[in-house]
Every structure is written in structure tokens, then in C-alpha cells.
Design a protein around this nucleic acid. Sequence first.
DNA 1: GCGCTGGAATTATTT
DNA 2: ACAAATAATTCCAGC
Length: 896
Amino acid sequence: MTGLGPDQEFDFEFLFEFDQSDEGATAATGEHYSYASSGISSGLPLSTAHPVLPAPCHDLQTSNPVISVLPSTGHPSGYGGAVDSGPAGYFLPSGGTRPNGAPALESPRIEITSYLGLHHGSNPFFHDVEVEDTVPGARRAPSTATLPLPGLEAYRDPTCLSPASSLSSRSCNSEASSYESNYSYPYASPQTSPWQSPCVSPKTTDPEDGFPRGLGACNLLASPRHSPSTSPRASVTEESWLGPRGSRPSSPCNKRKYGLNGRQPSCSPHPSPTPSPQGSPRVSVTDDTWLGNSTQYTSSAIVAAINALSTDSSLDLGDGVPVKARKTTLEHTAAMALKVEPAGEDPGATPPAATFSPEEFPTFQHIRKGAFCDQYLSVPQAPCPWVKPKPLSPASYMSPSLPALDWQLPPHSGPYELRIEVQPKSHHRAHYETEGSRGAVKASAGGHPIVQLHGYLENEPLTLQLFIGTADDRLLRPHAFYQVHRITGKTVSTTSHEAILSNTKVLEILLLPENNMRAIIDCAGILKLRNSDIELRKGETDIGRKNTRVRLVFRVHIPQPGGRTLSLQVASNPIECSQRSAQELPLVEKQSTDSYLVVGGKKMVLSGHNFLQDSKVIFVEKAPDGHHVWEMEAKTDREMCKPNSLVVEIPPFRNQRITSPVQVNFYVCNGKRKRSQYQHFTYLPANVPIIKTEPTDDYEPVQTCGPVTQGLSPLSKPYYSQQLLLPPDPGACLVAGFTSCQQRSTVMSPPPSTSPKLHDLSSATYTKCSPSTGHSHLGLQQPAGGAPTTQEVPRPRAVPSSAPHPSSHATLQPQPCSPTSPSAVGHQQHQPPKVHRHESPTTQPLSLPELHEDSSHNLAPIPVTVKREPEELDQLYLDDVNEIIRNDLSSTNIHS
DNA sequence: GCGCTGGAATTATTT
DNA sequence: ACAAATAATTCCAGC
């Protein structure tokens, strides 16, 4: 392929896999859907195609008497309907962006699996959950179960190898879900569904709610595999995790992704009765990733999502398909079966949820061993005799009440704002288990990060949660390869305690009114888990290699009148955790200018680390498919170069006649494979007002309209929305987003969003479709951009799930609602390139194979090559996409 | 002795 | 299949 840029590899693989998956789209789709949320089916075109879908889910939910899903009364509009009318930030979360406004990009190779993610599987809850209330006095999040960090299993999937557990485990195990998770796992877990935006929080009284949440919890809980002991055989993972660490585990074969040929040793370290199912259609992004191209990731994410919807079967069978993918499929199947299983019979179980009242929650926290998920996802005895369903525990019920860790939540809502007053340093060498602690994350200026909750006037202390999240372009979610590590000792002034939520260790810190609800985070270190261990985990789709950037994610759950809880979240700037990267890779933290005229010539100062006199700054414009349409090395002032600052001259853009802003990227390169992440930069028209209402230029990325053209626009748009087009009035966003949402919801429906949480949103804010939801869908990172989640304290009681949320599901679908319409991108993947296809992109300075020679100064617009995608979407779909894009464009133009 | 680092040797993966 | 380059882990040593 072509891209010469950092993400070259990525591009290649991405396309490759995409195509591949595409082949089996039809079959695959059906398959996926089957697991997918039932909600999706309703009202969605896709549903028809996938009759199977609804049933499983439904069964799952309804079948289990134990599961208390409180019917939500009011979330008619469903998920999408719930919107937070809150701050603009909500819609255009900044969390995902870097300090300079650029989205955090990241890991070089990310595999996105289409299967729906139930990953989160292993849930700590399953394992002995002992509750210790270490934070007395503070109102802890109801759902959080505190554990003394029992087995490492918490983050490692002990059962990962066990075939039997695969299904449920898969769903439960995987860490935060990725896009795919949404698609694939509707009913399942909130955690896995990024799309499910937090906008809505489930009502305790709603049976359905309970369920989803439960699932979320479930996610947390879900895994069949609980304690290692229950499983007959220790999985490799487990062994490595728990056992002596004398030797490194061999890297999981099935997890590795191989570029084009997809050759992967099918070796399975651990014999498993069944081929490992993991397989889901996955798009693997192999980019030099660590550079991460936001654009690419965004699109990849989209693609992945699409793939999830439309692919798979082929993959499963095909040769050259990563084993992992194939496994997924199998697992899913199994999982489905399992899911239908009635609640576990484990005696040890705590009282039925029904018996618990909200008031009782606090107590529950201390309850040990709960397996909320187990109930739902209990593994069939026959297949996996060793897996025992665990009794429902109070804790499990509670967890459902809080948004899953991979939910995108806003940093502020109403009078409240959770803010990181002092950001952590951009580098922090994480420690391995085999090493001693490397200390707490520090602030760049010395000291430690500081987080404060503004607008909270009560006297009740609150619990601030902290976990390690991803820093790639996809939705923020718990990082599978890193865990927060509690630091204690004399040097630590902030007390904290650990809890584990679905494979993710969470540090809970008290926010005291007397301290102004401000906390100095000097108790948080970062633990690196071995890639091989995590990659073997069922359901895990990401790869650890070069996936070394994280963000600190803070959450606070504020009790609201009526028993609900408002959840806010904010993520820090990206933190590079590898030793090597910290020493060798250039890192751009700030740029003096985010945009300039196409003529260029202006000096821009980059601040960061590891800049060398030989450092090069490359500007890149990418096509939707990841091709580099244009690359230009900017002039740098070697004299002025310092390790922490670099002065570059903004090069002229290839097209001097643009009529609307064009977003490009640039990165600092210290040599082969030593490149910074992509930074964003926007070229502004030289002399044309930026206000436009209709897209006019074919070749203009921003302006391009239509699925095909989206190539460029989708990529750049996200950023525009966030950076340039941010509407002062949230309301505006809502409207736009809402529209998109509706449209999309009918077309595609990533199920996940169906989360129960959406139910019963009393606050008006949640009644609308939240843009945030939409935004997050496509991979834009919105660490803090999600909709605030308000939820009532769950009332554990079994309720007939008579009121499914089909409708709500439909609305809730994780469709992209934002103007950015990432979804559009995804759609495009399938659309016929009818519009704006140009044969030869041009580029210049850096000789790009695919690029034609052209003067960068050429006034004429340069055609952009857009990859042609199979035309398989129905017209409705296309129309929808077009509409969305149109809206987005006009919206964008207006704002700009 | 422990925790925290900075470095660097080793080993595993990719190219 | 092999070698070189890279990235991931494990070890060491000093404070």
C-alpha cells in the first residue's frame, strides 16, 4: 500500500483486513448480530437481516429470574434519546484531545474485533470480592466493590484458556470494550459498550435497566470463570499470572496479528477442546502505531465497527485469519448458549438482589464474592463442568448502578465539574510485576497530579475513582495492559484503596469537602502487565506491543436527589509508559499554533521531549483510507532545537485554494521508527471566508460530501468539531446530534448502547439524543466527553423483564450521533464510491509511491484517491449517511 | 531492607 | 531461513 507515514503498516493491514472481513460480510453480520443486542433489531434495517439477533438477547435477559431489571419508564427515546443538555464539553469532549488539541493517538497496532465485546469478562466480582471499606465516611460509588485485590485474575483472565468459559468469559473478560464490543454485545455490558453512552442511567426500578447494568456489572461479573480453583486446568495465563514468574510466557500465538498474510501460528499454548473461538472479525490496525494517527484510528474504529456489523464468518473459516478471530466466533456461539442459562445455583451466593434495597448498598460493598454476571452468563455445566455459576451478590447488583468503565462520561454537568488541575507528566515508566514499584505518577512541574471536583457544595465526602485508561483514538476505556498501582508509604499523603471492576483495578480516593473536593494524586503508580498474559485473555482484542500510552481516568459519582447518581469523568493527557519510548521517541506536548493559512511560512514552536537537531517534522494529509495524500517535511531551525523544544516553519499546503479549513497532521521524526504521534494542524483558506453552508469542492476533504468523499472529511471533521467548530451553545449540538442520531439509529445499530442506563432519565438533560454518544462512537476519544450518567441507586430486586427496551435499544444504539458522524465513515466503507473519486492524489516532498508528483504549491486542487469499497449497503443506508454528512458539513461550515 | 530510579542486559518479535 | 532492528521484560546497582 502506500502510506509512507508512520502508520504505513497500519494502513496496510487495516485495509487488508477490512477487505477480508468484508467478504464475509453477509454471513458474518448475521452471526454477530445474533449475539448482538436484541435492542438493535428493533427498528433497524439490519435487524431484518439478522433475525437471530433478538432472540438470544431476549432470552438472556428474560430468562434469568434473578436478574432484576427494573423497567425503565422513561426512556422512550431510548438511548439516543437521552442526552445531556449539559455543557458543550459534553458534546465535544476535550478529554480525548491532547493538550494541543490533537487527539491522543496511540498504539500502533490495535486490533479491533468486531465481535461484540463482551470482553470484560473476568470480573473481579466473581473472584472473591471482599469488601473493605477503606474510605469511611465517603460516599462510595454504590457499584464499586472493593477488594483486596484478590487474585491477579482480576486483570488476568485465569480462565482464558478454558474453552468452556469462552463464551461468557469472552464477553466478560475482555477489558474495556472497543467499538466492536458495542456492536457485538448489546445486552451485555455497559462496560463493553462505549457507544452506550452514559447519557442515560438506568433506573433501579427498571428491570431492563437492571439487566444491562447488571451486565455492565456483568461485564464485570460475567465471567464464568471465576476463581481459578473452579477451573480444572489453569490456563496459561493464569499460570503466568499467578504462578512463579520465572520464565516469560510465550507470547500468545493467537493474539499476534500478522500483517497481510495474516499468518498466524495456530499454536495454542494451551490445548483447548475447541478451537478457540475468539474470532471475530477484526480489523487490526497495525500501524506504527504508537504514533497513532487519530484520523486513521478514527476511521479504523469506524471500519471496525462496520466490520463488526458486517463481517465475520469468512474470517472464521478463512486461512490466514488470525486464530484469535476464529476463536471469537466459536466463543460467541458458546457464549450464547451459556447466556441463556439460568442463574447460577451457587449457594454461596448472597441474597437475591430483590432483597436488597438501595439503602443496603453500602453494606453490600462489604459482601464478598458476588457473581452478578454469573447469574446471567452462567456457564453451562455440561460444557464446562468446572465452571460454577456463582450466586448473585449484592455487590453485583450494585455495580450495575454505576456506569461501566468504558462508558464515556462528561467531565462536567450542571454545576459540577471534575477537573484535572495538574496534569501528570507525559512520561512515566511503568513497572512490571517483576520489578519493584517505580513510584507514583508525577506532575511535569514536580509534585503530583491534582484533581478537583468543582461545584459540589455538600458536606458529604465523595469517592474519586482512578483507573488507567487507553490513550488511543478509540473511545476511552480501561487499558488492558496497564493497571493503576496503589502507592503507599510515608511519601504518600493521599490515602486510597483498591477495588477491581471487571479486570480493571480502580483506586478510590476520598474527596473531602474540607479539602475543597480536591485530591493530590500521589498514590497512583502504573503497573505494566505482560503483553502475553493479557493477550491470551479471552476476549482481549488489543495487542500490547507498542501500546504503551495511557491516561489517568478519574471518575466521581455524585448522589442526586431521588437516589440517582451523577457520574462525571475526566481523563488526563496521555502518558507514555515505556522506558524506551521515554528515552528515544520524540514527544510533542504542545504546539504554539494549531492552525495557519495555507501559504505557510509561519514559525511554530513545538514543546515536548526528545527533540534532536536531526529531528524532522513531517506534515501529512491523509485520505480516508489512510493513504498519505500529501507529505511535506517542514523546515526546522536546527539552531533553535533543544531537547524540549523545536522550531519549525509551517510548510505551504499543497492546495492554496482551499475554501474551508483542512486538517492535516504532522509528527516529529528522529529516525526510522522513532516518530512522535501525529499532531493536528489545520490549514486555513488564504483569503476566503470560511463560512460555507454547502460543500462545494470535491477534493476538499472537509467539503466533500457523500460517503466516498468522506474519506477526508470524516477524518478531519472530528477534530474540527472539537477544536474549531465547537459551538458555544450545547443546545445546538444537541439538535444536530439528535438528528443524526435518529437517522442513524435506524440504519445501523450498534447495539451496545442499549445499555440499561438510559432508562428513566429524570433529568431533562438526558431526554435528548446525546451528541456525545454519537461522538464517542466512532472512535474519537472522548475521555471526558460522554454524557453524564445519572442513575438511581439500584434496588436489587427481581423484576419481570416484561418491558424490554426494544425501542430504547434502537434509539440507544451506539450510532454515531455527532456531527462528526463517524458513523458516516463507517457507512462509507460499504458505499460505492460514487462521488468524488480522484485517481491520483498528489504529494510531494516525500516520495510516496502512490502519490503523484505535484507541486505542493499547486493552486489547483489535488485529487484525492479514495479507496473504493464494496457496494453493499442498501440505498437507505447510503441516503442516511449522505444526509448525515450533509448535516455535519453544513454544521461544520457554519461554525467555522 | 524497602521503595524508587536509571540503565542496561536479555529475550521476544518484527522487519 | 537468517540477520538486523525493535520492543518487551527482567536484572542490577545506587540512593
